[in-house]
């Protein structure tokens, strides 16, 4: 470009920019994994508005529906938990699939619901 004010060519600096984002990726991933204690994954914790509203053992197939501004139908199948139906717009929570590892979560932002897998006697030390 003739105009010095605008740089429109991909260059070395942009590789650095990508490097910065990659570094942030690894930092957040590492930070998250060291934050989540290596705990057993045997229980599904269901939160709404940040409050724990239900605990369900992953060992048992079960269903549960969270009410609220919208509804979320939660199912436990083969030791995995997922949201199978939701009245929220977008239904991102349904598309999030199934979770079984400790620390993993599925979030329904419109209904402010969070499913989280953890150990039976989980204390909310990390959150608070």
């Amino acid at each position: 470009m003739k105009d010095r004010k605008m740089n429109l060519k991909f260059g070395k600096g942009d590789v650095i920019a990508i490097g910065i984002v990659l570094a942030l990726t690894f930092l957040t991933a590492a930070g998250f994994h060291s934050g989540v204690q290596k705990q057993e994954a045997n229980t599904l914790f269901i939160y709404q508005d940040g409050k724990l509203i239900k605990e369900m053992p992953l060992a048992q197939d079960a269903e549960f529906t969270v009410e609220g501004e919208y509804y979320n139908r939660i199912e436990i199948r083969n030791q995995e938990a997922g949201i199978t139906q939701s009245s929220c717009p977008g239904t991102d929570c349904v598309h999030s699939g199934w979770i079984h590892e400790a620390g993993r979560s599925i979030v329904c932002l419109p209904n402010r619901v969070e499913l989280r897998v953890g150990g039976e006697s989980e204390v909310d030390v990390i959150v608070k």
Binding site: V21, L24, T28, V127
Partner: peptide, 19 residues
């Protein structure tokens, strides 16, 4: 909004995609 830091678990994936 969720009052939960566990949502941060999504961030690494989002950052990779943002590249």
């Amino acid at each position: 909004l969720m009052e939960s830091v566990y949502v941060v678990g999504y961030l690494p994936y989002l950052l990779i995609v943002s590249i």
